[in-house]
């Protein structure tokens, strides 16, 4: 405090008066946009390339890294097959709740098993036990599991992920990067024309989704 009473007050008023004439720090949004650093991450969204198609390569790295498990993927691949694992964006809310429950340590019914035909995991368990539940031998495990079922059911992948401790995204990523893995029973006609197959597959997927979510045919239109 200064010796003369009131001088501190006057000095403060002097400062505010100089600020009165200085250039302002705020901007007129949205006419002016903020100066954002190139590294700024901001909002999560999928990017499109110049042709208008998604840049996302479905590598699942984002889903793998997400700590609250809110990212997941589903959709068609280029051969008209669908590999939906958790469902469309509309059900993310439910997914998050389920994730929260799972993290709380309580047992949660895994909807993937109910939706995609649960299967008897004894054969899987034997294979996994033979490999000592080691995620580094994933390729061998997957090949042997395909040998048992003839294809890789989603339930089996889930089971492998849970037992080995590897992320489901990792297991799925491993499986999709090799051409000799199949995700449908061999009886399904995969040789149908691409567009036609896609429609059939989509209809099947939507029916499965509807029944799972009990939306009575109103979902995902």
């Amino acid at each position: 405090m200064s010796t003369v009473p009131g001088m501190g007050l006057l000095r403060g008023m002097g400062l505010t008066l100089t600020r009165f004439f200085q250039p302002k720090a705020t901007i007129k949004w949205p006419e002016q946009q903020a100066d954002v650093a190139p590294r700024f991450r901001g909002r999560l969204q999928l990017l499109y390339d110049e042709n208008g198609s998604l840049k996302c390569e479905t590598c699942f790295q984002c889903a793998q890294a997400c700590p609250v498990e809110c990212i997941d993927m589903g959709g068609m691949d280029t051969r008209g097959r669908f590999h939906v694992h958790w469902g469309p964006a509309e059900t993310y809310g439910e997914r998050r709740e389920e994730s929260a429950l799972r993290r709380s340590g309580r047992p949660v019914a895994d909807e993937a098993f109910t939706r995609f035909a649960a299967l008897d995991p004894t054969a899987d368990d034997e294979i996994l036990a033979a490999h000592d539940d080691d995620p580094r031998e994933m390729l061998a495990i997957l090949e042997e599991v395909q040998g048992v079922y003839g294809y890789l059911p989603v339930a089996a992948l889930k089971h492998i992920a849970r037992t080995t401790g590897a992320w489901y995204a990792t297991v799925y990523g491993t499986a999709t990067s090799y051409r000799h893995f199949r995700f449908e029973p061999p009886s399904v006609a995969t040789a149908a024309p691409a567009g036609q197959g896609q429609k059939v597959a989509e209809a099947g997927y939507l029916a499965a989704l509807d029944s799972a979510l009990r939306f009575d045919g109103k979902a995902a239109r």
Partner: peptide
Amino acid sequence: EANIGLLNENEIFV
């Protein structure tokens, strides 16, 4: 220093 000058010498504040 300029910003704290507004308060540190302000009698009311102190």
